[in-house]
Design a protein around this nucleic acid. Structure first.
Length: 425
DNA sequence: TCTGGGGTCCTAGGACCC
DNA sequence: TCTGGGGTCCTAGGACCC
């Protein structure tokens, strides 16, 4: 029989991770906040039932959360990243091919058995993940990625599906597509969603059946692919293995506005340091660097500016990137502007191994090797003893703008001192 | 006072070339 | 004074994703 595509994801991933390491939270409403404790990015089902909205700014609903006794956590990416790796490696033995799509979801391909029924396979997978990681997962099965997403949504929505739904086994999928609002389809965003509604296209079945010429005029080939996928024609391939990144970005909001040029420089310097680390970890070099900063879009007099420069030779050496980036800060800085966020974007990424040595290389071979060794040592020390153990002077010593994480849980799986403790009586 | 961060893909339009 | 057609490459910006 033909292969099946699956979309497997963890329910309320961040909130579920918090619950997995603090059993006292199970059954209680829990929300996890974005960086800087900005807004809600994950809710346990109990929190959802209380009507707490996704993406709501924390400062607007702090009172409501307190009055309902909601547990609030800052996001703990060290923990979630590690749990994600465990989840993905647990899925692997259950499928033929796996594409890790995001921190909490994966597409997979598997053969459909002769009897056609995958429910025992799915039940076994769910109970294994629940038992080993303490995470609830949902599984959607269908002939294409977009339909697998639809199926996953149905699996989550209805209790009687027990976290699994196989759209490929439905003789008539239309009722299921009709109960899927057009905005909920993977690939339909705000613009396309509004456009569909204006034309009376309200659900997935109607989008599937609409005139393709009209859709093409609005959404181009992306729209056509989307429609084919809804018809059960798989045209988005499964991508195994990490594809090389084309760009890498590090940006953060500040815990308080910055008006001082020196502080903005320090912030940009720290982001460059982090971005260079990421680059070396990806074994890539960057040929172009852009620095940007903006004030709050929620305040009058919004200001946003970017400045970029090309490097004579692509590099992942922190000192080289800092040297390129810091002069750009003066170009985007404006006195009296209250900067809320800044960042650095590394573009023109090339693989470190394939990087052709420039004829006018700024440093002789031996010196380049020495620099590469130095970067490796610094990365090693920071990995072992914690980020910031070896720091660059340009970043400043006591930044007052560092992000806020006031309700952080422990790094229970990645830092020895944070190992959970079990008490016995 | 306080509103996330990090990506990809596609298209339109300008510059430039023959 | 008249001023084509077709191609490539690059960039900016829109749209979308989690």
């Amino acid at each position: 029989m033909a292969d099946v595509l699956a979309l497997i994801d963890a329910n309320n991933f961040y909130a579920s991770c918090e619950q997995a390491f603090d059993p006292a939270l199970i059954g209680r409403p829990v929300v996890v906040l974005s960086n800087n404790d900005g807004c809600v990015v994950s809710r346990s089902s109990e929190a959802r039932q209380l009507g707490i909205g996704m993406g709501k700014p924390y400062f607007q609903i702090a009172g409501q959360l307190a009055s309902h006794g909601v547990v609030v956590r800052s996001s703990n990416y060290a923990l979630y990243g590690d749990m994600s790796q465990r989840l993905m490696s647990s899925l692997e033995p259950f499928v033929a091919e796996l594409e890790v799509y995001s921190i909490d979801e994966a597409f997979a391909r598997l053969p459909r058995p002769r009897c056609g029924d995958l429910s025992s396979w799915a039940a076994e997978l769910r109970s294994r993940i629940r038992h080993n990681l303490g995470l609830p997962i949902a599984i959607g099965l269908a002939p294409s990625k977009v339909l697998a997403k639809v199926a996953n949504r149905i699996a989550k929505g209805d209790r009687c599906h027990a976290g699994v739904f196989d759209l490929g086994r439905e003789i008539n999928p239309d009722p299921w597509l009709e109960q899927t609002p057009v905005e909920e389809i993977w690939g339909v965003g705000r613009q396309l969603g509004r456009w569909c509604r204006l034309r009376g296209i309200a659900n997935a079945r109607q989008l599937r059946d609409m005139a393709s010429g009209e859709l093409r005029a609005k959404a181009g080939v992306v729209g056509l692919r989307l429609q084919l996928e809804l018809q059960g024609v798989s045209c988005l391939p499964l991508e195994e293995g990490p594809t090389a990144k084309r760009e890498t970005c590090v940006s953060r909001s500040f815990s308080r506005p910055i008006t001082d040029a020196g502080e903005l420089r320090q912030a940009v310097a720290s982001y460059v340091v982090r971005a260079a680390e990421k680059l070396r970890h990806q074994r890539q070099c960057s040929g172009r660097l852009t620095v940007f900063a903006r004030t709050s879009p929620f305040s009058p007099g919004f200001y946003s500016q970017a400045a970029g420069t090309s490097l004579p030779v692509a590099s992942n050496d922190t000192a080289v990137l800092l040297q390129a980036a810091l002069p750009l800060v003066a170009l985007i800085y404006r006195p009296h502007k209250r900067f809320a966020k800044a960042g650095v974007l590394l573009q023109d990424l090339q693989s470190q191994e394939q990087l052709q040595h420039h004829l006018l290389a700024p440093l002789p071979e031996a010196e380049q090797q020495r620099r590469a060794d130095l970067m490796q040592r610094i990365d090693g020390l920071n990995r072992r003893y914690g980020r910031g153990t070896v720091q660059w002077a340009a970043c400043g010593l006591t930044p007052g703008w560092m992000m806020r994480r006031e309700q952080l849980s422990r790094a229970a799986t990645t830092r020895l001192a944070d190992l959970p403790t079990a008490w016995a009586r």
